[in-house]
């Protein structure tokens, strides 16, 4: 890979820059008043963005009778909601199910969505536009209308109440395909052509040359797919039968019943189930930077 990118890197890129000069192009080093003001405004805006979440956390520390209290700090904060939710022996099982499902689906999406996105972006072949629109059109049907056919399909193939049954509808998404297609557009064709001359086959060109250049988009895709599967509710509910196969959202929905919803428990469950997505976000958001430095340096 290094050979290829070194060689093809030359025509498009200026002399190698150090990471400092790369950043210098974006943000002047000396902090001036404008910079400080910008930071402050962004920070205040960020605080406003998380204010409702602060209320959610606060609710998770409250007793049922004070959940409608406007005070952000509860009168007598306590952790009993957390103990209640976590003491349910099955919560860990649901957690594990959700993690396994979200991880496998994410890997699958990263592979196939970028493969299809790349093909639709960089290859010229008859039917290209039709395939793109056809895939895009799958975004235009609400999931609610698909669950019944999926259920019948799962029943016919014996997929009910299994990981595969929960996962199969989301293994490839039009969202990811479209996202990756757009980001491959910023990969110059010259690179691919140079690699072709180097004797790499098309699969190698995609995997070794093009993919490293779209790492920021791959990172964003990973975050979104993981999140989407982590919060999926309707389909996992329909396809699972046994409590042991539930995912976290399905399990947590037990806190609401016919007439009543225990909001302090919902808030607690929401706070707990945000943690894994936060970790995934923190892991992958680094690539949104690093990928760029690489792209900036090497091409």
């Amino acid at each position: 890979m290094s050979i290829v990118s070194e060689r093809v890197g030359n025509p498009a890129t200026p002399p190698k820059a150090t990471s400092d000069t790369v950043f210098a192009g974006r943000a002047p080093k000396q902090a001036n008043m404008g910079q400080i003001l910008r930071w402050l405004i962004l920070f205040l805006g960020g605080l406003l963005m998380v204010a409702p979440i602060a209320y959610m956390i606060s609710t998770s520390l409250k007793w049922p009778h004070e959940i409608y209290n406007v005070k952000l700090i509860p009168d007598e904060p306590h952790l009993e909601n957390y103990t209640y939710v976590l003491e349910d022996g099955r919560f860990y099982l649901w957690f594990l199910n959700s993690i396994i499902i979200a991880l496998i689906t994410t890997v699958c999406n990263l592979f196939f969505d970028s493969l299809v996105g790349y093909t639709l972006c960089k290859f010229r072949f008859p039917g290209r536009y039709i395939v793109f629109i056809a895939i895009l059109s799958t975004l235009m049907i609400p999931t609610e209308m698909l669950v019944i056919p999926w259920y019948m399909m799962s029943q016919a193939f014996g997929w009910l109440d299994s990981y595969w049954g929960i996962m199969f509808p989301g293994l490839m998404t039009a969202f990811g395909t479209f996202l990756m297609k757009q980001f491959f557009e910023s990969v110059p064709d010259d690179f691919l052509e140079a690699a072709r001359i180097d004797g790499l086959n098309e699969f190698q060109i995609w995997w070794k040359v093009a993919m490293p250049l779209v790492k920021p988009a791959l990172a964003a895709l990973a975050i979104f797919v993981f999140l989407g599967n982590w919060t999926a509710f309707l389909w996992p509910l329909i396809v699972t039968n046994s409590v042991e196969m539930y995912t976290v959202p399905v399990g947590l929905s037990s806190f609401g019943d016919e007439v009543d919803v225990a909001w302090e428990l919902i808030a607690t469950g929401a706070a707990i189930s945000t943690l894994p997505t936060l970790i995934v976000f923190l892991i992958f958001q680094r690539f949104i930077i690093r990928g760029v430095v690489m792209a900036g340096l090497k091409g």
Binding site: V147, I148, Q155, L237, N241, S254, G256
Partner: peptide, 21 residues
């Protein structure tokens, strides 16, 4: 005994019973 969350219990039952599940 098998039980499902109240949310969408009706949908769940309506999907399963006609399918013989």
């Amino acid at each position: 005994m098998t039980h499902f969350p109240y949310a969408d219990y009706r949908t769940k039952v309506a999907a399963a019973i006609p399918a013989g599940e």
